[in-house]
Design a protein around this nucleic acid. Structure first.
Lengths: 136, 136
DNA sequence: CTTTTGGCGCAACTCGATTGCAAAGATTAT
DNA sequence: ATAATCTTTGCAATCGAGTTGCGCCAAAAG
């Protein structure tokens, strides 16, 4: 496991108090977090600061964002070695009941044969349903 | 090809002038339409009326909505026989250049093996890149 | 020490989505 | 045919996530 300092250094992001605590929080969660989720944890930190932190992280491939259909962007730490290329794709699972979003790293995404002359650059794959906790 | 009246009747949606023209527009487009797209065509119709029309259509499975990451929900007419179940899934393609969203009905979606006790209900699969028009 | 650069907090704003309410239209019961 | 009822529509207002401008502060560079 890399330390927070190492991750930021590798991804060329200056270390600050806010960045450390945001990244620590993201690493500690098994589910993708929204800006609001993070706000609720870092109550003394301004929303826009967290927002800009997330944008910086995303630009530098520290995290990736997920559109899960909840209306709020979610963020999750990139796996080690991830470059957010199509090859690094994974499914996301959104629970309709508890509204949490999981990264399904273990399920490979099929190779998609696009129509002629279409070119893939990224993808956003979200499966929705009930998570193991809510499917009872 | 079913007529607009037939579709609405089958899906148990009362026919009105607005509903007819909204559905006709959606059927005439090969790309999924946003609320704003439709507003721009039906300039004399109120936004909220179009909005409620779309919600009614969606509830009754006349259309389905797509989160393509553009920030605007897109809507497309369901294929004949579609019930918006997992088995009716298809990929969507969002063009990063011209911002249009296509339904890729012809590409089958693989069966996804979820972790134990996870249950799929719907999915939103969006591939992003360049469409055939923009990939030059 | 002074200048420059980057990060932060506050407040304001944008824009898509959504809702309350009353008027208009359509449908059903009397 | 008329009254009562339900549905649809138009207008205006609101909500909420995302985003930005600006001034302040602190760290780094000169």
């Amino acid at each position: 496991m890399q330390t927070i300092e190492e991750i930021l250094k590798i991804k060329k992001v200056n270390n600050t108090a806010i960045r450390t605590v945001v990244l620590r929080h993201l690493l500690s969660q098994e589910k993708a977090q929204s800006l609001k989720d993070i706000e609720n944890v870092l109550v003394h930190t301004d929303r826009s600061s967290i927002f800009r932190t997330l944008k910086t992280f995303e630009k530098n491939k520290v995290i990736h964002s997920i559109e899960d259909g909840s209306g709020m962007l979610k963020y999750a730490v990139c796996a080690k070695g991830c470059n957010c290329d199509p090859k690094d794709l994974h499914y996301h699972f959104y629970c309709n009941n508890c509204n949490k979003t999981f990264c399904l790293f273990d399920i490979p995404v099929q190779n998609i044969e696009l129509p002629d002359n279409f070119k893939i650059q990224q993808a956003n794959m979200v499966v929705k349903g009930l998570c193991n906790n809510c499917n009872k």
